[in-house]
Design a protein around this nucleic acid. Structure first.
Length: 218
DNA sequence: CAGATCACCTGCTTGC
DNA sequence: TGCAAGCAGGTGATCT
């Protein structure tokens, strides 16, 4: 009510609207969308009237967050460095401290913020690393390739306005198109574009994981 | 302490 | 056609 938006920041998958006297914390979860002057469906969970328009927070599955805090609590800040800005040396030193599989480490937002299931699978494919490879055992060279590919894929996906698997749209209601360039995600059984072997789907860390058994190595 | 297993919620697709 | 099971862009709590 009568508050001003001073700044809008993003860190990993989290968005922060800095207001006078508080902060609006937003995480879209799996099916969350922010719609600018969009259609109010039955899944509109919050509606923000601004001077020049309306912001709707729409989320079918309600896994996302749209929360106002006078002061941002600690548990809303427990995220590692942002995937798009983390330096390679920082990325490598953090990798060395993780014992798990590289796929689950990439998904861990405390490691780096911003990589989700689609982009973890795509980045591992692009760098020819098996999702079960031990994070701490990756050579400097392979870690360098992975860091390069995480950045390249996230930037490319942003350029294509994301991946619309079933219903994601951006603030203007437009679908993303990056799903057309997925090499492994959602392509189990199809031929690997690099070596021709069939793409596999396994479950790793409770998440569907897609990779090529022919050219991604442990 | 890491890894597995649920839990949260709703809709769509698949298979009998 | 109907109905149950499995799947989904993500965390987070609680076990073993």
């Amino acid at each position: 009510m009568g508050r001003q938006i001073k700044d809008v920041r993003r860190h990993g998958k989290q968005v922060f609207f800095e207001l006078d006297g508080g902060v609006l914390y937003i995480h879209l979860g799996m099916t969350g969308k922010l719609l600018w002057n969009g259609i109010r469906t039955k899944y509109a969970r919050a509606i923000l009237g601004l001077e020049d328009g309306t912001l709707i927070y729409d989320d079918v599955r309600q896994f996302g967050r749209f929360e106002f805090y006078p002061e941002l609590p600690e548990e809303r800040q427990k995220v590692g460095p942002d995937a798009l800005t983390v330096t390679f040396e920082e990325f490598l030193s953090r990798l060395k401290r993780r014992s798990g599989s590289i796929k689950t480490v990439l998904l861990n937002q405390a490691f780096i913020g911003g990589v989700g299931n689609i982009y973890a699978d795509e980045a591992l494919f692009a760098s020819a690393i098996h999702p079960k490879a031990r994070a701490s055992k990756l050579s400097r060279k392979r870690a360098q390739r992975l860091h390069d590919q995480v950045l390249a894929i996230l930037k490319l996906a942003v350029l294509h306005r994301g991946s619309s698997i079933s219903n994601y749209v951006d603030a203007d209601g437009a679908c993303g198109s990056y799903q057309q360039q997925h090499n492994v995600y959602g392509r189990a059984g199809e031929a690997c574009p690099r070596c021709g072997k069939a793409i596999c789907r396994i479950v790793l860390g409770q998440r569907g994981t897609h990779y090529c058994p022919g050219c991604q190595h442990v």
